[in-house]
């Protein structure tokens, strides 16, 4: 099991960030997220706690070494349960991959809270991801884990850069309308979720791969046997 941790401060209020959380797709940065559906949503009796279950659909390219061994669709799914708590002023999102989870699981927790030093204007973002590979071949597991951790880092960096550029552009117009604000925050926030989705896809591919590996192994050993047989016949 490997752990990925990340922290970030957004220069937007917690209210804005959480409202944007529902609207962040589609956007041109996270093109691998092709759909987001709400599956269940409940408000507690006090009206202060909103819990939502969502299905996030991703489509993404994966490394060549995985693709070689994989056939079929590159669509994968992530399930997320989020809780907005107005009493605590927190938004916590927990998610993991539905696809390929028997082979590799990325369990991610993201938390948004008002920044302790500037709760009105800034939001603290904390992210943690546990990446676990279950495959039986240790080397394959390590390779997969290593790759997924690297991917997380890359996307985290990309997300940060994307966010910064959005902030620069938006700084001027930010105060004008809520609508514009929403759009921007959307971008910012998406950075984060980007990470989880990326890791997910390849997991799914690896699942198929592992079964293919077994098949290939059979082919190879057959082929080996045959060529040995032929050699011994020839000699």
């Amino acid at each position: 099991m490997r752990l990925f941790q990340n922290q970030h401060v957004f220069d937007y209020s917690w209210d804005c960030i959480t409202a944007a959380n529902w609207k962040k797709y589609p956007n041109e940065v996270s093109t691998h997220v092709v759909a987001v559906d709400v599956l269940r949503r409940e408000l507690d009796t006090t009206g202060k706690i909103l819990t939502s279950e969502r299905l996030i659909t991703c489509k993404q390219s994966v490394p060549q070494w995985v693709m070689m061994l994989v056939g079929g669709s590159n669509i994968s799914y992530v399930r997320e349960v989020s809780v907005v708590d107005l009493n605590e002023k927190s938004l916590v999102l927990r998610s993991y991959n539905l696809t390929g989870s028997n082979l590799l699981k990325v369990y991610e927790t993201v938390k948004y809270t008002p920044h302790p030093n500037d709760p009105e204007n800034r939001t603290l973002f904390e992210q943690e991801a546990q990446i676990t590979a279950y495959a039986t071949f240790t080397k394959v597991c390590n390779k997969i884990e290593e790759w997924s951790v690297n991917r997380f880092h890359e996307n985290a960096e990309k997300g940060k850069q994307g966010f910064d550029s959005v902030l620069v552009i938006l700084d001027e117009s930010w105060k004008q309308t809520d609508r514009i604000v929403d759009g921007l925050v959307e971008k910012v926030d998406e950075t984060v979720v980007d990470l989880k989705k990326t890791t997910d896809i390849f997991l799914k591919e690896t699942e198929i791969k592992s079964s293919k590996l077994a098949t290939y192994y059979g082919y190879f050993s057959d082929a080996f046997k045959r060529s040995n047989d032929m050699n011994s016949d020839g000699n």
């Binding site: 599956l39 269940r40 409940e42 819990t51 279950e53 299905l55 799914y77 399930r79 997320e80 349960v81 989020s82 809780v83 916590v92 927990r94 998610s95 993991y96 539905l98 696809t99 989870s101």
Partner: peptide
Amino acid sequence: LVTQGVKPALDEARKEAPFENDG
């Protein structure tokens, strides 16, 4: 969810990390 075959994996995940347990 049923026709696209997502339901089984989803049900599994719901057992593992229930909605009632905040995921």
